[in-house]
Nucleic acid binder design. Structure first.
Lengths: 109, 109
DNA sequence: AACCTTGTACGAAATGGATCGAACGACCGT
DNA sequence: ACGGTCGTTCGATCCATTTCGTACAAGGTT
C-alpha cells in the first residue's frame, strides 16, 4: 500500500475521538506519540501482537488522532496535533497532561 | 436505597472517564446535564428503556462524572464539575463545548 | 391500607470489540 | 533472485457491553 487514507479535520467527531481514546492500549500509544513525536509502529513498544497493533493504529487513524506516512518498509505514525487543537481545543493537551503510568490497571490508591 | 456510592476524586482515572464518555448515549446525558444542571433520571429525555438508563447512569457515576442524590422517589443527577475540573482540567469543558447532536446539525466547520 | 410513580436489580439476548496466529505483501539489503 | 524486516489482512475466538423485559423496592398520595 502506498497511500493511506486519513479523514479531513471536518469529519472528526468527538464521539469518535473519545471512543478511540477509551482503550488503554490506544491511550498509551497516544501518550507515547505525544512524548516522542513521530514513531514507527514497532518503535511504540506496545505489548500486543503486531496484528493487534495494526488494528489499534487504524482505529486511531480513522478517528483522526494520528497520521501515518510510509518510509521504506516502515510506517511512521504521529499525532495530528494541529488539526486536533483546531477542532477540539485542549482535548489532546488535556489527555497528554496525565501520565498515569498504569501499564495495566493496578494500584488504585 | 438511601445512600449511593461515589468514587472520591483521587480514584478517577482518565481511561475510566474516556470510556464512560465514549458511548453516544452517555455523552448525550453528560451534555444534557451540562446544559440543564441537576436533572432527574426521567427528565433526561433519553431514548432508551429505564433499565438501560439506570445502567448508563451507573457507569457515569462509577467513572466519577456524575453524582446522584435522592429526593423522594426521584434520583437527581448532576455533573461533578468541580472535582473533574480539579483533576482533569478542561476535559469536561472541552466535551461540553461541542454540541454535535449527531444527526441534527451538520457542517460545523 | 391500596395504589401510583420513580427508579433499581436481575437475568438473557445480541452486538461489538480486543486479541491472536498464520498467511500475505511491500521494501530493502546482499 | 533470495532472504530478512516491517507491517497488513484474514479468520477465528473470547470477553465486555449494550439493550431489553420483567420483577422488585422505595417513597408519596389518597
Amino acid at each position: 500500500m502506498r497511500t493511506i487514507a486519513h479523514p479531513v479535520p471536518e469529519q472528526l467527531t468527538l464521539s469518535g475521538l473519545l471512543h478511540a481514546l477509551s482503550d488503554p492500549v490506544r491511550l498509551e500509544i497516544v501518550r507515547t506519540l505525544g512524548e516522542r513525536g513521530e514513531t514507527s509502529c514497532g518503535g511504540l513498544g506496545v505489548s500486543v501482537s503486531k496484528s493487534t497493533l495494526t488494528h489499534h493504529l487504524k482505529v486511531l487513524r480513522d478517528a483522526g488522532l494520528t497520521q501515518t506516512r510510509c518510509q521504506g518498509v516502515q510506517r511512521l505514525v504521529s499525532l495530528r496535533e494541529e488539526d486536533l487543537e483546531t477542532r477540539f481545543p485542549s482535548l489532546l493537551s488535556c489527555v497528554l497532561a496525565h501520565h498515569e503510568p498504569g501499564s495495566t490497571q493496578m494500584g488504585v490508591l
